[in-house]
């Protein structure tokens, strides 16, 4: 797996997947999508945990633990704030669609 060519293939395929999956995004969802993508790169936490877990000197451990804190903020905060944004969107849509005759339906 350490062959750079294999990693290049993963990289190129992931580029196409990343472009393809969001190519039809509606413009109202630009901000939540940015926020959600931002949360996903918080998975750098995995790298921070590995760096901290394999640290052999104190300065390295301290730096890596700082990275763990920062990455956790990114990951947890990112998903929570995205969910809040989307809940607001849903709330707004409900208000708009709540006409006199469609009181029960969403």
């Amino acid at each position: 797996m350490s062959d750079p060519m294999v990693w290049l293939i993963f990289f190129v395929l992931a580029v196409f997947v990343g472009i393809e999956v969001i190519s039809k995004v509606s413009s109202t969802l630009h901000t939540p999508l940015m926020s959600g993508a931002n949360a996903i790169h918080g998975v750098i936490l995995v790298g921070a945990i590995i760096a901290a877990g394999t640290a052999t000197t104190t300065p390295v451990l301290v730096l890596a633990l700082i990275a763990v804190v920062l990455a956790s903020i990114n990951l947890a905060g990112g998903f929570v704030v995205t969910d809040r944004m989307l809940r607001m969107f849903a709330g707004r849509k409900e208000l708009r669609s709540r006409g006199p005759s469609t009181g029960s339906g969403r």
Partner: peptide
């Protein structure tokens, strides 16, 4: 995982 997740965000983020 880091490679794929990071690349997904990099590509989707650029298009976005």
């Amino acid at each position: 995982l880091l490679l794929v997740a990071g690349t997904l965000v990099g590509a989707a983020g650029t298009l976005l």
